[in-house]
């Protein structure tokens, strides 16, 4: 028999209604690649700052069009600027793509679990990103770079479709120029002038310079890429407890009420999106869960 929570103890607080978006103003739109763009926003209402933890996401609302979850891709050290990077694929992202400086978006968030980077102190850190999956990892990369001395080797393995699909190119080049970061980029299809790797990102794992017994891995990309990446990391000797993945599912509410983002027994919105691999590995290998 189910017992109800004590209704009297729950006070109605409409000011903190988690279903209402806050207005944010666009400061800048930057086209990253042919189909991806980054928008920088600042609060335009009562909010002054927007703090978040790397790996969290927002619900982004375009007036009259719709609302979708998008991970935060900016620097957590800069709470005055909210940054989202996304691909123009659906009705909302396509509408966002047409927006300009000064336009208003609705934001609810931040939601979800962060990358547990605090647990990586003293260890090697490996980031594996596929395509737009680099965007949710960028905030934690900023944090690691800012506190570089805390970690052992820091490796980014990034795979994307073609050289012209490489996201955050300038930043990647800056990071690559540093001696204390290992940045490897691979593409599915190369063209003349590409001097990097060709092939899927999982191919890079076996040769990447990290100590698998003392490594935390953070993985974000298409689900099939994450399946093979986690397998490859495990094969290399990284404990499943030390691998973290960021899941994606359809979301309407982001607060665990709409049911859409269920992945087995977890809600991706409130229990994730970042999960310890060991927690979800049985579901990740099943189709259509």
């Amino acid at each position: 028999m189910a017992t109800a929570p004590d209704l009297q103890s729950l006070k109605v607080d409409y000011k903190r209604n988690p279903m209402l978006p806050w207005p944010f103003q666009i400061r800048r739109v930057k086209h990253e690649t042919e189909d991806t763009f980054t928008i920088e926003l600042q609060p335009s209402g009562d909010l002054e700052e927007f703090t978040f933890q790397p790996g969290q996401f927002n619900m982004v609302y375009v007036y009259g069009v719709g609302e979708i979850p998008i991970s935060i891709s900016g620097d957590p050290a800069n709470p005055r600027t909210l940054v989202h990077t996304t691909r123009a694929v659906g009705s909302v992202t396509k509408a966002m793509d047409k927006m300009r400086r000064g336009d208003i978006l609705g934001i609810r968030g931040p939601y979800g679990t962060p990358w547990p980077i605090d647990h990586a102190n003293g260890q090697d850190v490996v980031f594996v990103a596929g395509g737009i999956g680099l965007a949710p990892l960028r905030p934690v990369l900023y944090e690691v770079v800012a506190q570089r001395e805390r970690y052992g080797k820091v490796v980014l393995l990034y795979g994307t479709r073609t050289p012209s699909d490489v996201l955050f190119r300038q930043e990647l080049e800056n990071w690559r120029a540093r001696f204390d970061l290992e940045i490897y980029v691979t593409v599915d299809r190369a063209m003349s002038g590409w001097r990097g790797n060709v092939g899927v990102v999982t191919n890079l794992i076996s040769r990447a310079p990290f100590d698998p017994r003392n490594t935390m891995a953070f993985v974000c990309g298409p689900e099939v890429m994450m399946r093979f990446t986690t397998m490859e990391l495990h094969k290399r000797g990284v404990d499943n407890e030390h691998i973290f993945v960021s899941m994606e599912r359809n979301m309407k509410c982001a607060i665990g009420l709409c049911g859409h983002c269920q992945f087995g027994s977890v809600f991706v919105c409130k229990d994730g999106p970042v999960f310890r691999y060991s927690q979800i590995k049985d579901m990740l290998v099943k189709w259509e869960i």
Binding site: A2, P5, V12, M19, I255, G256, L257
Partner: peptide, 24 residues
């Protein structure tokens, strides 16, 4: 069934203010 939906909508971490308003 009502007790179950109470848990879903009012059990947290987020509470559904629309449901709460009608249920109380």
């Amino acid at each position: 069934a009502i007790a179950i939906q109470d848990k879903v909508f009012l059990g947290g971490p987020f509470i559904d203010p629309l449901y709460q308003r009608k249920r109380t």
